[in-house]
Amino acid sequence: MNVRRSAAVLAATAVIGAAAPAVAASPSPSPSLPSGLYGSGDPTYDGVWRQSFALIALHRVHAEPAAAAVDWLAGQQCANGAFPAFRAQPAKACDAKLMVDTNSTAAAAQALSAVGGHGGAVTKAVNWLKSVQNKDGGWGYTPGRASDANSTSVVIGALATQDVPVPQVRTGGKSPYDALLKLSLPCADGGAFAYQPDKKGKLRANADATAAAVVAARGTGPLTARAGTPSESTCADAPDLTPAKAAANGASFLAGAVAKDGYLKSVLPGAGNQPDYGNTADAVVALAVQGGPEAARVPLTWLERNSAKWARQNGPAAYAQLILAAEATGTDPGDFGGTDLVKQLTATGPAPVTASHDDDSGSSVWWVVGAGLAAGAGIGFLLSGRNKRKRP
């Protein structure tokens, strides 16, 4: 759910999906950005995604976003219920030239469900997602493309938000869980999930796909997951693999991947041993969902110490990812390694009505009043390596 758009889902050509959209070619601010949008960079490839992430994160910390921010997102929806990555002319009806995708639609459905007041739009979005389900039970980034773990996971999140029984959403006799389990690797290969089979049909471990699939296999989604009752996180092969067992196997892989350095490594060509901050935040959520907050302590601590510069450079979706990681582990996003994530996120968009955060114990309450927060502008895009999901 890193959101999720990094280095380039080439807009009109090979959009091969990820649970998070791709970043535009240039992070330059655009003078024509709508006032309700979070972030100052070109929204062509990630506008709906980053807006959805921001609204979900603010909802999680009990902040009421500006009406303009919600209205902007709702206005991106097409008449058939689908959402594009960005709709530059919302007053103009969607046509065949406007590419809509499952990731943007599922993310927007979850965001509009969270803020409330848009039940009809959410229902239309979910119905559209059901209408483009693949015969193997999953979803690709765009209708008709092969199913991938990330897209299937973010759609599962949208279904779960509306209390739709995921196993009952079927086409060709297959459910979304059937599609995910086909992408689960045996323990001999780490127990991870693959993004998709490679050109030779081989499954290769993909940490970002694994983080998304773990929470989806637990019945929720990457954007809205919360820590639950701790469950086993050891890898064990079984002839009757279930979503619960696949989630445990995937969590075991993630725990091993972050054990040494505290972070997931980038798989971008030439990146070497560079950390992937966005995918690490996703792993925190997945580990917390499967094994409880303590299971995510190592990567969470690393993010608290090292993510501030990355978040400043990459704007609203990055701040939102860190807020969700903090919330999943019971950590105060108002003091995340010394950074007030909520204040930084709200500074990238229209000032919220109010922003508050109560931790689970009720021991702390803090407020951010919107005046002046919009003066700052988020820069750049979410360079979280989400295009890596396209690579085995």
Rank of each mutant, 00 (worst) to 15 (best):
V3Y: 15
R4W: 15
R5Y: 11
S6N: 14
A7I: 13
I16W: 15
G17P: 02
A20T: 13
A20R: 14
A22S: 14
V23G: 09
P31E: 11
S32N: 10
G36K: 01
G36M: 02
L37F: 01
G39A: 01
G39L: 04
D42S: 03
T44M: 12
G47F: 07
R50V: 13
F53L: 13
L55D: 01
A57L: 02
L58M: 15
R60M: 10
V61W: 11
A66Y: 00
A74V: 14
A79E: 14
A79H: 15
G81R: 05
A82S: 04
A82E: 00
R87F: 07
P90A: 03
K92I: 13
A93W: 03
A96E: 10
K97C: 06
L98I: 01
N103D: 15
Q110S: 08
A111W: 07
G120E: 14
A125T: 06
N127Q: 14
V132E: 02
V132M: 06
G144H: 13
R145P: 04
S147N: 09
A149E: 08
T152C: 05
V155H: 01
A160I: 04
D163G: 11
V164Q: 14
K174N: 13
P176A: 10
Y177R: 10
D178A: 12
L183N: 05
L183D: 08
A188F: 04
G190S: 11
G190T: 08
A192R: 10
F193E: 04
P197C: 04
P197G: 06
K200C: 05
D208C: 12
T210R: 08
A211W: 00
V214Q: 00
V214T: 02
A216G: 03
G219Q: 07
P222A: 01
P222V: 11
A227G: 11
P230K: 05
S231L: 13
A238K: 13
L241C: 08
A244F: 13
K245P: 06
L254Q: 04
L254K: 07
G270Q: 07
Q274L: 10
D276G: 06
Y277I: 13
A281V: 03
A281K: 05
V289P: 02
V289D: 01
A295W: 05
A295G: 04
K309W: 11
K309C: 03
A311L: 09
R312Y: 10
N314H: 12
L322P: 00
I323Q: 03
A326Q: 01
E327H: 10
D332F: 01
P333K: 11
D335Q: 08
F336G: 04
V342W: 04
V342T: 12
A347R: 00
T348N: 02
V353R: 12
D358E: 11
D358M: 14
G362H: 13
S364R: 12
W366T: 07
G370A: 02
L373S: 01
A375R: 09
